[in-house]
């Protein structure tokens, strides 16, 4: 069983509301602040991208459903700051309280304005040295039967439920990448070969729209087994 964020294929969400190309990048000022404070929080180096994704996924389903996009980011950030020991619950409960612990031990890691451009330009690549790939383009592979983290019950994984237990064809070999199922839980990066795998819409859905239509997912080697 996956979590509430795993919504690919779900019914009931209604129409999409496209926006004009020239709509503001941030619909509200606080959206921009939420994005910026989240990136600045990440720059403290107390978590990786997989931990931060899992923090949002771990919101209570009722919160995940009612929160807007950037509210999820804020909630995930607040939870992580406490979980990783950067802030305390008391800090959150009383933002204006005078702090007795200044300066914070991580203060020298704070992202400074003059370092923003270089930090964003540097990025955070996920490719690593690792084992040679077992599969090649054209190989038929089947995904694991359940889209679940095999290390931690309810843990982070990037295999969506709609693609569990399905057979597809490798189309790209991306090299070795950090395994989110491991890295999200402090178990190390455990890099594995990563593949783009194409699945026929007719293998994924009860009522596919087009006979030649496909969905391609990026999947780690341990999500896959060879299929004939």
């Amino acid at each position: 069983m996956t979590r509430v964020h795993d919504m690919g294929g779900r019914f009931g969400d209604g129409a999409i509301r496209p926006e004009p190309e020239d709509a503001p990048v941030f619909a509200e000022d606080w959206h921009a602040r939420a994005l910026a404070v989240t990136l600045a929080g990440g720059a403290l180096g107390q978590w990786n991208i997989d931990i931060s994704r899992h923090a949002r996924e771990r919101l209570a389903p009722k919160d995940y459903a009612r929160f807007s996009y950037y509210e999820k980011w804020l909630a995930g950030l607040a939870d992580l700051l406490v979980q990783q020991g950067v802030l305390t619950r008391d800090d959150l409960a009383d933002p204006d309280a005078p702090s007795g612990h200044d300066p914070h031990p991580l203060a020298d890691r704070a992202l400074r304005a003059d370092a923003v451009a270089a930090t964003l330009a540097k990025g955070g690549p996920a490719d690593r040295d690792g084992p040679a790939p077992s599969f090649a383009p054209g190989d038929r592979v089947r995904t694991r039967a359940r889209a679940e983290n095999v290390f931690v019950p309810g843990g982070h994984t990037r295999l969506p439920a709609y693609a569990q237990g399905v057979t597809g064809t490798v189309v790209l070999v991306h090299g070795c990448h950090v395994l989110p199922d491991s890295a999200a839980h402090g178990r190390g990066e455990a890099p594995e070969p990563l593949y783009a795998v194409a699945f026929g819409a007719h293998d994924l859905w009860q009522a596919p729209e087009g006979s030649g239509d496909e969905v391609v997912l990026d999947l780690w080697e341990s999500y896959l087994e060879r299929a004939e």
Binding site: A32, R33, A107, A110, A113
Partner: peptide, 21 residues
Amino acid sequence: ALETILTRKGLVDPAALDAII
């Protein structure tokens, strides 16, 4: 509130937030 707490503790530079935005 989050920005206030983090700024007071020296963990966030408000000018860096402006630069990101």
